[in-house]
Design a protein around this nucleic acid. Structure first.
Lengths: 146, 146
DNA sequence: TATTGTTATACTCTATAACTATA
DNA sequence: TATAGTTATAGAGTATAACAATA
């Protein structure tokens, strides 16, 4: 099957790469029952203790409505704790439990294996270059003039 | 909000970039009512006239079961034609209708505007380098040895 | 036996509107 | 009024199992 000109499009290449990389991530973290999004949530809470649900969901580009089930699951699994804020009764302050920190520690270890596999494939210089290119892509204006 | 070390992971950078690029693609093709997947299907049928549903869905990494609704929609919109094969009564041979070719022509035009926006952001050399890096990523072994 | 296309089903991710309780 | 969190809902995308017709 002829794939041209499809294989010359950045959007298509992104989709293929993302599919493979996410599969490898999920395979690597399979034992922890953590999908990419959940891993990102734990990481952000760990790095920003006391952040609210809105803070975290906005930082990850997740709608707050869709974040409710995610955070409820993590709380049910006793990985995340929610405390009522003293200064604002509307918000919950998020933090990791001891179990959450421990699971995150193991997840980070496995993630670094996953990332190493990418480095083995590209080389570290090229991996960093890829990160730079992807970050620049993400700065594409949202409502382009025409 | 602190995003490190999340922003140093290729998987996360891929997700952010893909989200922005797909949004721009959809915005650019909005008038044609064609999502990225449908565009890819039309392009592949155009480049491989007489291909079967299995051929096209396999080439795009789509399960044949999920391809049924996609192709039915394109057929209902009279963009794609399905003919029974003479040599194998199980398969349908896919081809574009005149309307399908015309819609694809306009879609390709708009897609090239979208791609130009990426080139404007990265420069053509960097865009080609990105394509190369993404293609190499997609060659990551599926079941890595640990 | 294996393959093509199909149906049915389920799960994830995402998007939106509307509600509540607070601010 | 505006915001934080919630509920409900709907649309995509994706995965699997099972089937009829055909090879």
């Amino acid at each position: 099957m002829k794939l041209t000109p499809l294989d010359g499009f950045v959007g298509y290449a992104l989709r293929r790469a993302q599919s493979v990389i996410f599969a490898d991530f999920n395979h690597t973290l399979a034992g922890l029952n953590l999908r990419p999004g959940q891993f990102a949530v734990l990481l952000l809470i760990d790095q920003n203790p006391g952040a609210s649900q809105s803070n975290v969901s906005a930082a990850l580009g997740i709608q707050k409505a869709n974040f409710v089930a995610t955070i409820a699951d993590l709380e049910n699994r006793q990985l995340v704790r929610r405390r009522k804020s003293d200064s604002d009764a509307r918000t919950y302050l998020l933090s990791l439990t001891a179990g959450g920190r421990e699971l995150l520690r193991r997840a980070v270890e496995l993630q670094s294996l996953h990332e190493s596999r990418i480095t083995a494939l590209l080389g570290e210089d090229e991996r960093l270059r890829l990160l730079d290119l992807l970050e620049r892509l993400a700065r594409l204006p949202c409502n382009p003039s025409k």
